[in-house]
Simulated scan of single mutants.
Amino acid sequence: MKPRTGAMLALTLLAGLAAAGPARAEDKAQDKDAAAAPTCEVPSYLLATESTLPKVAEAIKNARPLTVLVVGSRSSTILSSENSAYPAKLQAALKEKLPTIPINLSVELQSGKTAEEVDAGLVKLVEAKRPTLVIWQTGTVDAMRSVDPDEFRGAIDNGLVALQNAGTDVVLVNLQYSPRTETMISAPPYLDNMKVVAQQHSVPLFDRFAIMRHWNDAGDFDLFSTFHGTDMAKRVHACLGRALSKFVLDAARLDPAQQN
C-alpha cells in the first residue's frame, strides 16, 4: 500500500504535539504546574517482564559506566527541548537511582525509517557507541506505511539477532498510543508481532502503547484533544522516562542495595 500522508503521521507523534500552536495563558500556567510534578502512575503489570538485562546488571554490580543508546523515531524527541524528551528523563532517573554509576546516554534518530531500514545500520551504531543497553523504539513508521506485518516481524527478528550478536542488552519500545488515529492506523498487528519476537529472543518489551492508553483512560492525559502544547508533550515524556527507568532497573534484577 502507499505510505500515509505526513499530516497523518504528525497526528501520532508527540513531537508533533509539541509543535502545536501556543496555548492560552491559563492553559500554559496549568500545564507548567503539572509538568513540574507529574503524577502519572503505571500499574505494576504493565512494567512486569520475565526477560532480563544481564549486561546492565553486570555493569552496575561492578560499578562500571552504564552506556545507553536510544534508537528511535521522531517521537523520541521534543523539538527545541531535547532535555525534556524521554531519553533525557530516563538518564536523569537512572542517575537518581544509581548515583555512584556513570550514566552515558545518546540518541540516534531514525526519522521516517521502517524497522527494516533501521536494521542495516544497527551493528555499526553498536560498534561506534559500544552500549551496554540499546533501547530500540520502533513500529510507528511501519504502521503508518502499512508495511506487511510479516515483513515487519522479520525485520524486528533480524534486528534483535544482530544486536544480541553484537553483545548488547536490548529493550524494545513499541508504538505510542493515539486515540485520534485508531480508525486510521491498525496498530494491533505490529504490537502483537513485537511482543512475539521479544519473547522469542528473551528481550524486555516496554509497552508504551498500553501505558499511554492507561494514562489516557485514567484521565492523566487527554490524548484525544485536538490541542496539545509543548507542556503537554513534556509531561508525557517525563512520565515515560520515569516508567522506562523503573522498567530497565527491574529487568536488571538488582538487589535493593544496588539502588539508591
Results as ranks from 00 to 15, higher is better:
residue 1 M to V: 15
residue 4 R to F: 06
residue 11 L to K: 13
residue 13 L to W: 09
residue 19 A to F: 01
residue 21 G to V: 03
residue 24 R to Q: 06
residue 25 A to I: 15
residue 25 A to C: 13
residue 25 A to M: 15
residue 28 K to E: 08
residue 28 K to P: 00
residue 31 D to E: 14
residue 35 A to W: 14
residue 39 T to W: 10
residue 41 E to S: 13
residue 42 V to L: 07
residue 45 Y to I: 04
residue 46 L to C: 02
residue 47 L to K: 00
residue 47 L to W: 05
residue 56 V to P: 00
residue 57 A to W: 12
residue 64 R to E: 15
residue 76 S to F: 05
residue 77 T to W: 03
residue 78 I to N: 12
residue 83 N to L: 13
residue 86 Y to K: 06
residue 86 Y to H: 07
residue 87 P to E: 00
residue 87 P to Y: 01
residue 88 A to G: 10
residue 92 A to T: 11
residue 94 L to K: 06
residue 95 K to P: 05
residue 95 K to I: 01
residue 96 E to C: 11
residue 97 K to H: 13
residue 97 K to S: 15
residue 101 I to D: 03
residue 104 N to V: 04
residue 109 L to D: 05
residue 112 G to E: 06
residue 116 E to F: 08
residue 118 V to C: 10
residue 118 V to F: 09
residue 123 V to T: 15
residue 130 R to V: 02
residue 130 R to C: 00
residue 132 T to N: 04
residue 135 I to Y: 06
residue 139 G to V: 10
residue 141 V to P: 03
residue 145 R to P: 00
residue 145 R to C: 07
residue 145 R to W: 07
residue 148 D to M: 00
residue 149 P to F: 03
residue 150 D to S: 13
residue 153 R to V: 14
residue 154 G to N: 10
residue 154 G to H: 01
residue 155 A to K: 00
residue 165 N to Y: 13
residue 169 D to K: 02
residue 169 D to H: 03
residue 170 V to N: 04
residue 171 V to W: 03
residue 182 E to L: 10
residue 183 T to I: 14
residue 183 T to Q: 09
residue 186 S to I: 10
residue 186 S to C: 05
residue 187 A to N: 10
residue 190 Y to N: 00
residue 191 L to I: 11
residue 192 D to F: 09
residue 195 K to M: 02
residue 197 V to P: 04
residue 199 Q to F: 07
residue 199 Q to R: 14
residue 202 S to A: 14
residue 202 S to F: 12
residue 203 V to G: 05
residue 204 P to N: 09
residue 207 D to T: 06
residue 207 D to S: 07
residue 208 R to H: 12
residue 212 M to D: 10
residue 212 M to R: 12
residue 214 H to C: 00
residue 214 H to V: 01
residue 215 W to F: 02
residue 218 A to P: 05
residue 218 A to E: 09
residue 222 D to L: 00
residue 223 L to E: 02
residue 224 F to L: 13
residue 224 F to R: 07
residue 225 S to E: 14
residue 226 T to I: 11
residue 229 G to V: 00
residue 230 T to Y: 09
residue 230 T to I: 12
residue 230 T to A: 09
residue 232 M to H: 08
residue 236 V to Q: 03
residue 236 V to Y: 02
residue 239 C to M: 01
residue 240 L to A: 05
residue 241 G to R: 13
residue 244 L to P: 03
residue 249 L to A: 02
residue 251 A to L: 05
residue 255 D to L: 11
residue 260 N to K: 09
residue 260 N to P: 09
